[in-house]
Amino acid sequence: MNFYLPIAEISINIYVLLSLGVGIGFISGLFGIGGGFISSPLLILVGVPPAVAVGSTTVQVFASTSTGVINHYQKKNIDYQMGITMIIGGVFGTLTGVLFLNNLQNIGAIDNYLSSIYVVLLLGTAIFILYETAKVNIFYKNKKFKLHQHSWIHGLPFKFKYRKSKLYISILAPLFIGFGIGLLTGFTGIGGGFILIPCMIYLLGMTTISVIGTSLFNITIISLISLFLQIAINQNVDFVLAIMLIISSSLGAAIASRVIEKLDQENLKVLFGVLLIIIASFLLYELFRTPNNLYRIDYV
């Protein structure tokens, strides 16, 4: 059974779309991620135009993180000072990302650039996950690690006291991290939690208690800003696609929450890493293979 997506201007099999959403939600639920960096490339692979995939994924990211923010707000796990600093950087990053996407769409290079970035992100994350799993389980079994060590970042000027996180660091660091995540959100539609959280822990030295809440707060606000900018500048958010993704991914996340305790976490991580490598391989294949059609028309 097919369903017409009014902004993407294509019809798509509803079962494919729902399965995709459930799968994304399931993975998100298992690993505590927004799922944007999986849903965007998968939507492109099933035929959704890249710009619409990016725009609609932004909505899904916003929806999936907004409820989490409410929970963390109630538990007082959000460092608002840190969050707002990153959001300031993120606003500029998002605007840059959305304009960059618009420019690439105009020159017709969006598919190449997006696929290349997704490949780097997916492979980078997969390698990181597999390495970390191997490090804990094989290389340094039973050894303890320091999560955070002082680095050049702590020598930057314009220092500010972040009371909730008990940090005294330069505001430049969260500003730049926020800018980078915003750039990623505006350009690729992903929330960037899988990059933001390690940055907050390893680079800024935040405590794990406030990291999750603060990152969700940052991602929610940045994806909200990105959503408005995507609609205003690129007009690439498909309401029907976004709503379908939200509903189906919620179902997937609910299933994940039921089975997560029965699964071995370390095996899951390896499985996740392998899954990312498979998606990246498909994108790589699409990037380098001889195209079936040499010509394409896009109406303005």
Binding site: S64, I231, A232, Q235, S250
Partner: peptide, 26 residues
């Protein structure tokens, strides 16, 4: 486009809250 964006934001919050509520209760 502003109305579209607001409509979408409200819908996505409401839908995700309903979905969470529905799926968590079962």
């Amino acid at each position: 486009s502003l109305v579209y964006a607001i409509f979408l934001v409200v819908f996505s919050i409401v839908f995700s809250l309903i979905s969470n509520w529905l799926f968590k209760r079962r």
